[in-house]
Each structure stands twice: as C-alpha cells, then as structure tokens.
Design a protein around this nucleic acid. Structure first.
Lengths: 241, 241
DNA sequence: CGAATAGTGTCTATTAGACACTATAAT
DNA sequence: ATTATAGTGTCTAATAGACACTATTCG
C-alpha cells in the first residue's frame, strides 16, 4: 500500500440522443451508422463527447441534435433520460453517457451529419427484439426511452409533440395507439381528450380529407401536465382466468 | 486555429445521495456537514467521487451510503435521480454528479462517517425554503428528489419503504400525508390500499397500542407498480372560484 | 345514393369521496 | 363508562368503457 495522495479518477463524458417519432403508425428511433471504430458499421444513437471542458451537458445534447441528426433544436424539447456508465461499456476507456429523450413529429429523412456515415429511422420494435445490432448499450437506452415515452403519454401533454403544429384528434389517437401498442375507442378518446383542460385547443380551420368528413384541427394546449391523466389500460398482471 | 488532433475533455464523476425519511410526520433528508473545502462547514448531501476508474457508478453510490451515511445497503433501494453537471457547480473543476434517491424507514440518528464532520436529518421544507444553506446545487437536487418521491408514491409501492418491516395502515397513511403535504380520509384510504392488489399483505399478528384498538400489521406486498394507482388530489390549477 | 371518416349521445358498471357507524382495546 | 384509535357500511356524484347513432364530405 503506497501512501500517495489519492486523486479522483476522471472519465470521458458523452451524450446520447433517443429521438422518437411516428412513421406509418409505428414508433421509430433515429439511428446513425457508425463511421469509426469501435462498432464501426453498427447502428448507434446520435451523440458524442463533450466538445470542451466547459460545455454544458444539455448544450452538448442540443449541439449533437443539430450536428448529427440535422434536426431543428428549437422545436424539440430534450429531457434527461438517465446516465449510462458501466465500466466496459466502451472499449476506448471509461465513458459515461448522459442520455436524452426527444419526441419529434413526422419529418423528412434527416440528412447525414458530420461523423455519421448514414442516418435513418428504424422501428423501435426491431431494435427491442434484437433484430438490429446496436453499438454499446444503446439497445438498453432505447428500451428505457420507449418506456419513458409510454408513461409520459399518460401524465404529460407529450403526445402532441409527435404531431405537427396542427393536428386532428384522430392523429393524436394514432400516437397513443402506436406508443402504447393498443387500440382505443375513438369516441371515448375524443371525449377524454377534449375534457382534459389545456391539453389541446381548437386551431380554427377545419381541413383535410381524402374522403370522409373533414376533421377539426387543434394545436397543443398550454398544459404540460395532464389532469386528469390519460389512463393506460392494465396489462400483463390482469391475467384473466 | 491549430490543427492538433482533438481529444475529448475529461470530467470528475461524483455521486450524491438523497436519502429521505419520515420523522414526526415530516419529510426529512439526510445531510452531512462538510469537513473540507469547498463549502466547508455547509450542509451537503452525502456523496463523493468515484474511488477508482473502474468503479461502477451504482456501486459507488452504495459505497457512499455505507461510508458516509452508515446505512444498511441491503435494505435501501437506490434509484437514479439524474445528472447534475453544470460547469461551475464545483469550484474544483468540472465535476459531474449522478444523484440517487433512496427512501428509508425511521431510523436512529446515523453515526458520522469518515469524511463527514457531522450528520443528521433535516426537514425538507427547511431545505426547500432556503432556510438552510446547502453546498453546491444540492438544494436543487433535493427539490428534484422530493418531487420524484411524490410522484412515485402514486404509481409505485414506494410508500412502504418509508415504513418499518411491519406497519399499520395508519402508518402508511401518515407517509402519504407527509410526503404529499395533505390530509386523507382514513376510511377511504383504508379501502383503497386494501383493494390495490399486492400493495400490502397481512402480517399475521395484530399489535401496538398506547390506547385504542390495536391495529393489524402488514408487510410490503410483492408489487412494485401500483394498479390502480393512488391518486393525488389536484392542486394549484383547480383554483376554485 | 353509398362509402368513408368525424363527431355526439346514452347507458352502465365502477370508482372516488363524503360521512356515520361499529369494534376493541386501556384507564 | 369514557376515551381513543381501528375498521366497516353506505350513499352519491363522477367517471371509464361499451356501443349506436348522426353529420359532413367525396365520388
């Protein structure tokens, strides 16, 4: 045992972004193809190291959002998802990553950024089933992100973030159905959403229709927390006889 | 602009523990008095740097729990609360802290650990009101921890973690009332808790009574997630005319 | 008109919340 | 008996969930 004065170890700090959206009624996550080792060629979450020692972590997340995902920083709200710092999760050394969650409306394919060889939306169920091979512990991070989105739909107005600025109630129902993976009664959903004060507000004009009656348009309301919450039907444990 | 190969910056990684308990019907948080600079003499959350470069973050949190708080690691479950890494939050340099939340039953005063000059439980409302001067951004971390506990009480069986191994329904009600800062109807609470399957299970013997009818004892049930959830009455926004 | 989607009405079983009562102990 | 706390019963208003209907567009 030496008696050298102890100094704390240092780590590399990274951010990773779980950006979810809806395409063709399925939940998708934005992934890039890694252009460099380790895990070169594998799919991974957009993200990267802090740029410099004074960079704010949230600022770094926003920077990666525009650099790697080429998405508009202004329209997306990032929420901290958690820290992933297992020793050995990155062969380059001790890398601790702060994961952020963002919800995006349906967007055109993002163009590849600087250090992303390719970028694209992948269905979350393909990721979670292990069908796709992800770098690092990113499958785990995505699983946590999806689960977070599921519960946030219950208690926050996050659902509107999946929609474009104006949307129909049917659009919003599609969000809940895709994220929760269930079907909902349109009539009850209609009532419920309307009576949850501040959730959605009418956007004047009705519009849209390939066929059928045109739907009214709404915008996201002022509330961020829903009261009463949207209730997700019980699952698993209610194994009915 | 030089053309030196860019290398990512490094940071110091710390863990901080928000340990909540109930004493005399008030929510308390465990704080230590800092024995060294910076913020020497101020109150702070128990915590500290990673011991070595390969230490798991959760393991470090458990280690601090026993070292600094002298609490039994086995009985307390730690939950990640978030990352606090603003540049400038620590004058010693770039320190990023991972905060953990734990709930403890009423315990004897913990004995001071190694680098804690003094330790003790402080009411959370004194902390949140700014009545006590905390080191770093620990007031903010505690505020987040308390808020997390509030919402977890709704959807998880966390409330039982505030109680000793066996407890009465009145004990459990006291937890909800203290954390939520409201009063509840004992009769409705009784029914609600009983019918939430797996929340609490009878512990055989009835017992306890200074005066009045002895209460039945219960243990924490197998469920971690409550369904249906305990509903916290609406606050603020329902400003009744 | 029919097809398709939007939106409303109504009924019922369940539940939250209010409140009165009975039960079991100590003094 | 009195006091104090534990536990149960009951009523009512609100709500979730099921389901039938009307409304508005296009072709």
């Amino acid at each position: 045992m030496t008696d050298d004065p102890w100094v704390p170890p240092v780590v590399l700090l990274a951010v990773d972004l779980v950006i979810l959206t809806l395409r063709e009624s399925r939940l998708h996550v934005l992934l890039i193809e890694r252009g460099i080792d380790p895990y070169k060629g594998n799919l991974a979450l957009p993200g990267g190291f802090l740029r410099h020692a004074e960079e704010d972590i949230t600022a770094a997340a926003h920077r990666e959002l525009s650099e790697e995902a080429d998405l508009d920083v202004e329209t997306l709200r990032l929420e901290q998802l958690g820290v992933y710092g297992d020793p050995g999760r990155d062969p380059r050394g001790r890398v601790v990553s702060v994961a952020y969650l963002a919800i995006a409306p349906r967007l055109p394919e993002p163009t590849a950024g600087t250090d992303a060889a390719d970028a694209g939306w992948q269905p979350t169920d393909r990721v979670l089933s292990g069908d796709l091979d992800l770098a690092f512990d990113h499958q785990r991070i995505i699983a946590d992100g999806v689960e977070r989105a599921r519960t946030k739909l219950e208690h926050s107005a996050l659902g509107t973030a999946f929609c474009r600025p104006t949307f129909t109630i049917t659009d919003l129902q599609g969000v809940y159905e895709a994220v929760w993976g269930i079907t909902l009664d349109p009539r009850n959903f209609y009532r419920k959403v309307q009576k949850t004060e501040g959730f959605i507000v009418p956007a004047g004009t009705s519009r849209k229709a390939a066929t059928g009656r045109p739907a009214r348009l709404f915008r996201a309301g002022p509330c961020t927390a829903l009261y009463p919450p949207m209730v997700r039907p019980a699952e698993g444990p209610s194994a009915k006889e």
